[in-house]
Write a protein that binds this DNA or RNA. Structure first.
Lengths: 152, 152
DNA sequence: TGACCCATGTCAGGATTCTGACATACATTC
DNA sequence: GAATGTATGTCAGAATCCTGACATGGGTCA
């Protein structure tokens, strides 16, 4: 009610609110990551590698929500800075498994502290049940959106 | 438990989930908007103008989560296509109030139908109480994130 | 009235990302 | 063993967006 055929009320739209929250999160993360010379994609890539060493370029791209090409240039930069290593030749197939260097692991630790503070600030004021509820709802939304994308 | 000082478990991170959901939503909206030759920012701008006619460039930028500069080039494009109109001179100050043309209103109606279908798909499987719960939680997150950003 | 501060619209430059395309490697099928 | 389909890494070009900067208009305060 209140939003007939004349438009979608942005004030009450969950889609708009989702974008708003995501935008605020990105901005907050960028703020705390900037002193470390890192960006959100930077951090995402490193964090993914810490949890699942040996990930390929394509897998990292999917995990960080960017294209293979973007992740490729990022990996080259990280390699140049000595934060990750990739074998010159693929052990099997074309996949070049990427791994963190000690230096990469070190800067990731700093970034993790910063990011965790942001996440805690975001969750401030929410009870434990509200957090798990939000978790389930967000998962449901993502699943439903992905399910429909295959029809085209 | 399970996510001590060695990192943030992306599988259980609400921040990561938020980004994932937002990314899926954007992809789904782009899919249904592409046949109309529109992008998400396009649509956001038109929808904002429909609800609050006379919005300025800067206000539209904030509402669509882009910079003034990006919104400026978008408005020029929309003006060239005859979807919006802006006075040649500012009635007061430097602000140029923007308004939808009948043609802009027409294409917005089509876009609204498409976007509404995406939003309904996203909300499928969620009860009414879950939706309002998600609404409150997302609002709380955004507010908390914004509150801390002013300290720098 | 004048100084100061903030917000706006706009221009130029650079950085980032994406779209499109290609060759290669593995798995599956016949 | 050959053909096909899928997935990967990479290159080139274009589109997009942002950072930095400038001049202008309005409000506040002395």
């Amino acid at each position: 009610m209140g939003q007939e055929a004349d438009g979608i009320d942005l004030e009450t739209s969950l889609g708009y609110l989702l974008k708003e929250a995501s935008s605020a999160l990105r901005a907050a993360m960028d703020d705390v990551l900037r002193p470390l010379g890192m960006t959100v994609t930077h951090y995402s890539c490193l964090e993914l590698l810490a949890q699942r060493p040996g990930l390929s370029n394509s897998e990292l791209a999917r995990g960080a929500f960017v294209t293979r090409q973007s992740m490729n240039v990022l990996l080259h930069a990280l390699e140049r800075e000595g934060h990750v290593t990739r074998p010159a030749e693929a052990p099997v197939g074309k996949v070049l498994p990427t791994r963190l260097t000690p230096r990469g692991r070190r800067i990731l630790e700093k970034a993790t502290v910063a990011v965790r503070s942001v996440e805690e600030r975001m969750l401030a004021g929410l009870s434990e049940t509200e957090r798990s509820e939000a978790f389930r709802v967000l998962q449901s939304m993502t699943r439903s959106l992905r399910a429909g994308g295959d029809q085209g």
